[in-house]
């Protein structure tokens, strides 16, 4: 960890985000171009899902200005409800797009109820 981290000025950007539903999970996709795996941080604490993604100054835009302006970082937070199982969250980064798969809680998954036929 950079010991000068306290002095680094970040300019926060809100990443455009899609969320959609699939069979057993929800998918969250956020555009974070210019971020490598090292700059990415996804945390979940007290139902608060926080995405922080620091751009690589070499890779990102405005390289010249960033010396004065600080580093650009994406940040966005979501409050997750009981529909999501916090133990079933996975993340991947590809081509500047962060994809999170958030598993549905067992309690909200549709259940098939077996019917006993009595004669």
């Amino acid at each position: 960890m950079n010991k000068n981290i306290e002095n680094t000025q970040y300019n926060y950007i809100t990443p455009a985000t899609d969320i959609y539903e699939e069979e057993g999970h929800f998918v969250l996709q956020a555009d974070i171009p210019g971020v490598t795996k090292d700059g990415l941080d996804v945390t979940l604490e007290n139902n608060l899902l926080e995405i922080t993604a620091k751009t690589d100054p070499e890779l990102f835009l405005h390289t010249k200005e960033s010396e004065n302006e600080g580093v650009y970082a994406y940040r966005r937070s979501f409050k997750i409800d009981r529909n999501i199982d916090s133990q079933k969250i996975s993340a991947s980064l590809e081509d500047g797009v962060l994809t999170l798969e958030l598993g549905k809680s067992e309690e909200v998954k549709p259940k098939k109820i077996e019917i006993t036929y009595k004669q």
Partner: peptide
């Protein structure tokens, strides 16, 4: 019914 708030944006 509850999907609307499943990931509430709190930015």
């Amino acid at each position: 019914l509850t999907t609307y708030n499943v990931l509430q944006d709190i930015n």
